[in-house]
Amino acid sequence: MAEMLTQPLVLLIGACEVLFWVLLLAGLATRYVLRARRLSTVLLVSVPVLDVVLVPASLLDVAGGSPPGATHGLAAVYLGFTVAFGHSVIRWADGRFAHRFADGPPPPGAPRYGITKVRHEWVEWGKLALGWGVALAVMGLTALVAGTAVPEPVAWTTDPMWSWGARLVPVVVIWFGVGPLWATLAPPREPVRG
């Protein structure tokens, strides 16, 4: 693990995560505190550019002779979940900044009852499944560039890169069970006030 923390790709992943939040907060502060809408748009549009930097860096690393490993799996998972949840995080933060600094309405909470709750649970789980799918696709692309084979399903837990995809299986399954499946089978009803 200590060796992994000194690898340039891991440092790039860390830098991308830090820059995600720096650009997001700078973009929102510029929009709502400084009222510089054009500059804030440039900063906020720069947030997804980080993903464009990370994928080629990972692919160049394996194209240069590095065997696909845990670092490449981590980069794929980071990218997948940034693609799947990044827009929601930006929208969430934007609503809070607008409320706090621009007299915007209070941000709505997640729905708690009925069909809107069920729909919300399916959408959120769908984002998780999308993130997992993007991560697996990037791992497949990494294996293709490196000229390595995709391991048999049994070997997924032991392969350094693909084990990241295998680690997410329980998360995807448990989230499905306690999220959309549970909400669909037993949709929460608003309490009757009397």
Rank of each mutant, 00 (worst) to 15 (best):
T116I: 01
I90C: 02
T30P: 05
V154K: 15
S40V: 05
P107Q: 08
E124H: 07
L28Q: 05
G114T: 04
A146F: 10
A146S: 07
A84T: 05
T6W: 13
V138G: 08
K117A: 12
L59Q: 00
C16G: 01
R119W: 14
G147V: 01
Y78N: 04
G114R: 06
L141T: 09
A102E: 03
F20I: 04
V150E: 11
M139V: 07
H120K: 00
T142H: 14
L181Y: 13
G14T: 04
V49W: 12
G104P: 06
L43Y: 13
V171H: 09
G95P: 02
T148D: 14
A166T: 08
P107C: 08
L74S: 07
V42W: 15
H120Y: 14
V172K: 08
P187V: 05
L44T: 00
E190K: 07
G109L: 11
Y32D: 02
R193K: 00
L9N: 01
G165K: 09
D51E: 12
D94E: 04
A63F: 11
T82G: 09
P105F: 07
M139Y: 14
A186H: 14
G64W: 07
P108N: 04
H99I: 01
A93S: 07
P107V: 00
P108V: 04
L28N: 02
L28E: 08
T6E: 15
V77M: 04
G86A: 05
I174C: 01
A29C: 09
R100V: 00
T30A: 05
L5K: 12
T116A: 12
V83K: 06
G133M: 11
E17G: 07
T30H: 05
L60G: 10
E152W: 09
H87Q: 10
Y78E: 02
S46Y: 03
L144D: 06
R167K: 14
P48G: 07
V52S: 11
I13A: 04
V49D: 10
T41P: 00
V49L: 15
L23P: 06
E121A: 09
A166M: 11
V45D: 11
A57Y: 08
L25Y: 09
V53T: 00
L43P: 03
S88I: 07
P105C: 03
V55D: 00
T30Q: 13
A137L: 13
M139L: 06
T142I: 06
R91E: 11
K117V: 00
F97I: 11
A70W: 14
G95V: 05
P48Q: 08
T142F: 13
P108K: 12
P160L: 01
V169S: 02
L24V: 09
L54V: 00
A63H: 14
D61W: 04
